[in-house]
Nucleic acid binder design. Structure first.
Length: 858
RNA sequence: GGGCGGUUAGCUCAGCGGUAGAGCACUACGUUGACAUCGUAGGGGUCACUGGUUCGAUCCCAGUACCGCCCACCA
């Protein structure tokens, strides 16, 4: 299904594969002199920004800055920037690596490349292609050989031929002789005195040796840490300046193994690659065409960016767990004059791709010209466990396996050994096949037919590239189908400080602890309420506590209804209250239908927060705050028809609360469902309601209840501001009221009086002394506060609310008076503004009338 | 270094062309028979900054600053 190849990669392993962690560490930058070959000298000129010469001297060396002296042994070149005039005279010349046995020092060319920064260090960079990411690029561009210096244990190589011989061969290759990657890799350019040393120990030795030889760049310093002498006593004598090697302190970002806590060593090794470019096209197309949709849309941006810039995908991993790569290596076979020789050199191996070892043996037998498979033996891949093969540090599976076999006392003589690649497949290469792999593929199973492709993949946004993109790519490559139609990327839960939770960092919050404290429903509801698209979820305990309270609220409302509601009158999913005589009942039915539509729309758009918060506002703000209150007088009504209607409606409304909330609070709703009535089903099996807002919203009831609620709120507000004791009932004065208002009052007088704590209504022609004005839509009421009223306070209250209204009106009028606004804005916006302005005018005039009355009193 | 996202009330976050919202916290009052894990009423915001587009910008565009995440050989 895939184009794969095995190639040298810069991918790097230390003891084992592990996630990397970049840490800033205090590094050192050494400066060394690379002597020029053949007695070449040049005029080294340094200038400041203005072009003034600050230094001019004749040099027979080029100065190099490095943080990794031990890798000098593997240098292939010294690079300078093409625009760097300082080194222009010596570009193309050779210089000598100042380390190793004097008689066998290698000469390397001075080349130009865009990579070196002329303003950094000396402006000249040593190029060690096999042990540095950036150097690798330069080496690749310039055809510079890459010499590997270390083994898998992070030690300087101890394998292969002696240094002198290797250095000579390297010199030949550098001089232009053709050589394979394997041949270059086989060269061990580590001098005998450093062989087998740990890389950090080798670094110390290299620095010491170069410095001892006088090839370190020197500087003057009084810093005792750098070799200067400590000051004697304070002040008397300045510390003496002495010549010391130039070593700059330099913070460097260094990759550490997340588990091993060891500095990761970039190193060339052989790896398997998948030609990602080949399989990425269809994956890009499927998203571009909309066949696969990613929400939120920003995920698509990220997806494109990644896939458009994709590189060959390295699928080899050096760890124990995973699917071992199904490739077996064997020696190459040559027959010269009828004599068969087998070549076990790492670069000369052949490989067999097979489903299992038996198949590999068969393929190998055929390859080597044997009829049976008896002579082909499968060696055990060498063990990766560091303590067991510490002496190897070997990158070559074949010789490692042979060595291990021999250690175990077996003699492979007379057989042809083959050995499976010890690496395993990248986790994501394996799990990329999850959509079909879990359903029985490659069998043509019923499950595949039924569940593949699936509808929605829900996952974290951080995994988009790792997994989601790979699944799309791989399913298209393998079965030529998209794996799912939509991808919903949710945010990540972070800790209170906004950090990603991590087991190794230890800032993980255990959901079970939250559940113990607040309940599973509260946690679940909070998760939904905080799941804004593309957002980040900082776990906020107070908010979870708030949603626990919400559950309690629902519980209490149901408890109230227990005595009053009738649950079995309407079918909770299909039945809908109709022909309601009471406005309050008709109103709450409409509100319910409205929230159901909102919730459906929100869920369809993956806006779980809108759905959860909409339900919260409905259940708490509409049902509990108002409907339950409205229902009380209706339930106490002597009219049994009103009573029955209200009981039935309340039962229906609470059923709807439970059903709609069930996805968000499954436990409490299931419990309430079971305890409120005898039900044929658990709520989890209840049908989701389908009634629409347009069918159920009674706009007259809607308008009337809005009027009632506003009036009650205004009376309450006024009472609070005028410091009327909460328990005190007041008479209400009606100064003027239009027909609609009157009708609304008549139908809801009991509710209003109860909820606003009004004891009676009196029609008056004028508000008496000591009454405060209470405008409402279509009329003016007043509250007599007798001597309690403070005229100044009331004046202040009126002018304050007038001020607010006038400010808003000013803005509106400014807009309406702007001809460009009227011309450019949509008609409905202009109309809305006009209506609002008129409304404000009306309220302001009512308030100013009240101010006038107040003035008369004074 | 590259990419993505964020910066809105004291805190945690919604909103994203028509002048700003929630929960918590805060203030005052309250044991009115569902609920003090509660009720009622309130205070609180030059929507990071600077420009631009527009009749109009928290919202769109450009830039700046800071923060976070992912990737870091690829970017």
């Amino acid at each position: 299904y895939f184009n794969v190849w095995r190639a040298r990669s810069r991918w790097l392993e230390n003891h084992f594969y592990a996630p990397m962690l970049y840490l800033e560490v205090a590094g050192h930058m050494w400066h060394f002199k690379y002597p020029l070959a053949d007695g070449v000298t040049y005029e080294y000129v340094e200038k400041d920004e203005d072009g003034n010469v600050t230094l001019r001297e004749t040099r027979d060396y080029i100065s190099i800055a490095t943080t990794r002296p031990e890798t000098m042994l593997g240098d292939g070149a010294v690079a300078v920037h093409p625009s760097d005039e300082r080194y222009a005279p010596i570009v193309g010349k050779l210089c000598e690596i100042p380390v190793g046995p004097k008689e066998h020092r290698r000469l390397i060319p001075i080349i130009t490349d865009e990579y070196p920064d002329p303003d950094f260090g000396s402006g000249a960079v040593k190029i060690t292609g096999a042990h540095d990411f950036n150097d690798y690029q330069v080496a690749k561009r310039g055809g510079i050989p890459m010499y590997r210096l270390m083994d898998t244990q992070g030690k300087m190589r101890a394998d292969g031929a002696g240094y002198a011989q290797c250095a000579e061969t390297a010199q030949d290759i550098a001089g232009g002789r053709e050589a394979s990657e394997a041949e270059v890799d086989a060269l061990n350019l580590v001098p005998e005195s450093y062989r087998g040393l740990d890389r950090f120990e080798a670094r110390k030795r290299v620095v010491a040796d170069i410095t001892a030889e006088g090839l370190a760049v020197m500087t003057m310093s009084d810093d005792p840490r750098l070799g200067g002498k400590p000051k004697k006593t304070k002040g008397e004598e300045p510390a003496p300046m002495v010549e010391v090697p130039l070593v700059e302190a330099k913070p460097i970002m260094q990759p550490f193994g997340d588990r091993s806590k060891v500095v990761i060593e970039p190193m060339l090794t052989d790896q398997w690659f998948v030609d990602a470019e080949k399989i990425v096209g269809p994956a890009l197309d499927s998203v571009r065409s909309g066949e696969v949709k990613i929400v939120p849309e920003s995920g698509e941006k990220t997806y494109y960016h990644w896939l458009e810039n994709i590189e060959p995908w390295c699928i080899s991993r050096q760890l124990w767990w995973g699917h071992q790569i199904p490739v077996w290596y064997g020696p190459s076979r040559e027959v010269v004059n009828g004599v068969e020789t087998l070549n076990f050199e790492p670069g000369q191996l052949v490989h067999f791709v097979a489903r299992n070892a038996e198949e590999a043996r068969a393929k190998a037998a055929a390859h080597y010209g044997h009829e049976g498979t008896e002579k082909i033996i499968v060696l055990r891949s060498f063990d990766r466990d560091p303590p067991k093969n510490a002496e190897d540090g070997n990158l070559d599976p074949m010789s490692g396996a042979i060595a291990a076999t021999q250690r175990a006392g077996y003699d492979p003589e007379g057989t042809i050994p083959i050995v499976q690649d010890p690496d395993v497949l990248d986790t994501w290469f394996s799990s990329g096949l999850w959509p079909i792999g879990t359903l029985g593929w490659p069998e043509d199973s019923d499950e595949l037919a039924r569940y593949f492709p699936t509808s929605v993949l829900v996952t974290g946004q951080d995994i988009l590239f790792f997994w989601v993109a790979r699944m799309i790519m791989m399913q298209l490559a393998v079965v030529d189908k998209i794996p799912f139609h939509e991808v919903y990327l949710h945010g990540l839960v972070r800790d209170a400080k906004g950090k990603k939770m991590s087991k190794s960092v230890g800032n993980v919050i255990d959901p079970l602890e939250i559940i113990d404290e607040y309940g599973a429903d509260a946690l679940r509801f909070a998760s939904a309420a905080m799941a804004a698209l593309g957002g980040v979820l900082k776990l906020d305990m107070q908010r979870i506590a708030g949603y626990r309270n919400f559950g309690t609220k629902l519980w209490n409302a149901t408890r109230f209804a227990e005595m009053n509601a009738v649950y079995d009158h309407y079918d909770p999913a299909a039945g809908v209250p109709s022909d309601l005589s009471q406005t309050a009942n008709a109103w709450i039915v409409g509100e319910t239908a409205r929230v159901r539509e909102e919730v459906d729309a929100a869920l369809a758009a993956y806006k779980f927060n809108d759905a959860a918060l909409g339900l919260y506002a409905y259940v708490w703000g509409k049902v509990c705050d108002w409907y339950v209150e409205f229902a009380e007088p209706l339930l106490a009504s002597e009219d049994t028809a009103v009573q029955a209607e209200t009981r039935q409606t309340m039962g229906w409304v609470l059923d709807q609360c439970m059903i709609l909330l069930h996805p968000f609070m499954p436990f409490i709703t299931e419990e309430l469902w079971a305890t409120t009535a005898k039900r044929p089903n658990m709520i989890v099996h209840a049908d989701w309601p389908s009634y629409g807002a347009s069918d159920l919203i009674n706009s007259a009831a809607d308008k009337e209840m809005t009027w009632v609620i506003t009036l009650i709120e205004n009376i309450r507000s006024l009472r609070a501001q005028m410091h009327v004791p909460a328990g005190l009932k007041l008479p209400l004065l009606q100064l003027e009221l239009d027909e609609a208002g009157q009708a609304a009052w008549d139908r809801n007088a009991a509710l209003i009086m109860r909820l606003a704590r009004v004891e009676s209504l009196h029609l008056v022609d004028a508000l008496p002394k000591g009454a405060v004005t209470l405008p409402c839509e279509g009329g003016v009421f007043g509250l007599p506060l007798s001597d309690a009223i403070d005229v100044d306070e009331e004046k202040e209250r009126l002018s304050k609310s007038m001020g607010k209204l006038e400010k808003e009106l000013g803005g509106l009028q400014g807009r309406l008076n702007n001809p460009k606004f009227v011309a450019s804005a949509p008609d409905e916006v202009v109309e809305e503004n006009r209506e609002r302005a008129a409304q404000l005018q009306d309220e302001i005039s009512k308030l100013s009338a009240a101010v006038d009355r107040l003035a008369e009193l004074a």
